[in-house]
Write a protein that binds this DNA or RNA. Structure first.
Length: 138
RNA sequence: UCAGUCGGCCGGACGGCCGCGGGCGCACGUUCGAAAGGACGCGUUCGAGGAAAGUCCGGGCUCCACGCGGAUACGGCGGCGGGUAACGCCCGCCGGGAGCGAUCCCAAAGAUCGCUUUUAGGGAUAGCGCCACAGAGAAUAGACCGCCGAUGACCCGGCGAAAGCCGGGAACAGGCAAGGCUGAAACGGUGGGGUAAGAGCCCACCGCGCCAACCGUAAGGAAGGCGGCACGGCAAGCCCCGCCGGGAGCAAGACCGAAUAGGAACACGCGCCGCGCAAGCGGCAGGCCCGUCCGUGGGUUGUGUUCGGGUUGGUCGCGAGAACCGUGCGGCGACGCACGGUCCAGAGGAAUGGUCGUCGCCUCGGCAACGAGGACACAGAACCCGGCUUAUAGGCCGACUGGCGUU
């Protein structure tokens, strides 16, 4: 049994691709994907910012803000054994900090509900929820 | 003091709290993993740029290839000298172009000198090719207008006895290339002589070409002499000459290192039955595999250890150097040398962030105090250096040019 709410970064492209098959919550400043990897264990965490939202400076800033938001929100709202991927949107770099943090908390709460529901119904792959896969950042 | 051009430099500052990556020290435990190895604690310290960018040149480093020399092909470079590890970079100089000023000069043209600025600048008698449009003519040029011929052949009219005179029109052969026109460029310019008209045909000055004392390391400069003048431009067209160049790149490359399959070495073992002289074949049992246990079915077949190989994965490569800062000396300068001091990012889905305060800057409102807003120019290291190019709000310093003001 691992300590509660420890976080491990996702490092492999294959890990990111798996999470894309899970649930997703869209907010104006962020898109969060989540998938129940195991019933327990550390939280998995990854970040993605495609070249669609800007150059290297903008993408780095977006990822940093998302990382800081995750640091503040995940211990409270994250679920053990779940992999999360935070995808930056066009508004991520310039949004007010409070709004961004609010969107992240909100999305995490929503995902917690969907995960619990999905586990109860034993329907872990709602693949119909994805009309078009987002562009993968390198 | 203001504006413009050029060159150099900086490119938000300080602090509180929380967080992230690397180094070092202390803990030496927990956890993930087959292993290699990784993650997690506390303290301390360091933590993006002048372009980190484009990936256009030059190197280091790594692997591959490679006897030596030459030739050819391909690619790059191209005034000279210097700097440099090297360069297509930098510095100085030479030559050419442009602008301004001064002098020579009646003036113009031109020359000389000074300042500023610009320039890929070997070869056009090695050869080939091209020179659009316009224009008469574009390369051993050409004759459209024009000039001469023309003090007028010839024609018409008038006068006259005639010779002829007056008025009007006007051609050929032939000569010329001054003037006009076109053009990026027209086979020297100005003045005079000369001539039917002209022409370097001749002369003076200027320009040009050839030779050249002497000066300079050299590119090159040049006193002087000779020549009536010939030799157009383009080589970022082919080309010729000289010099340089092996290829691929940190996803280079090195090491560690499961399972499975296949390989090698050594040790030990090779049951029972049938057939067969033997080699061997078949069956049974056993072992192993099909996730585990039981059952059933199937497959496979000596066992163990070690070596080698290398996949997933992991570690290294990875930052003390063509380093930075200061002082002194040499050099016009690029830069070099000496001495002293400093350690200055190393990620790997990729750290340098979040928030708050004070100040600065910009925008808006306001007479002002002040208030509101602003992720406040361009932009994010990825093996490392030297350059070039491109992007860049705002600010500082210097030089030159011009305007205004003051003495």
């Amino acid at each position: 049994m691992s300590p509660p709410n420890t976080v491990e970064r996702l490092r492999k492209r294959s890990q990111f691709l798996l999470v894309r098959n899970g649930y997703r919550a869209v907010r104006p400043t962020v898109l969060i994907e989540a998938r129940q990897r195991a019933p327990d264990g550390p939280i998995g965490l990854g970040f993605t910012a495609s070249s669609k939202i800007g150059g290297a400076v903008v993408r780095n800033r977006a990822k940093r803000r998302l990382r800081e938001a995750a640091r503040q929100a995940l211990p409270e709202f994250g679920q053990a054994g779940v992999d999360y991927v935070f995808v930056a949107r066009r508004g991520t770099p310039d949004a007010a900090w409070d709004a961004l943090l609010d969107d992240v908390r909100n999305a995490l709460i929503r995902l917690r509900a969907e995960l619990a529901e999905g586990r109860a119904e034993r329907a872990p792959w709602p693949r119909s929820k994805r009309p078009s896969p987002p562009k993968e950042s390198e």
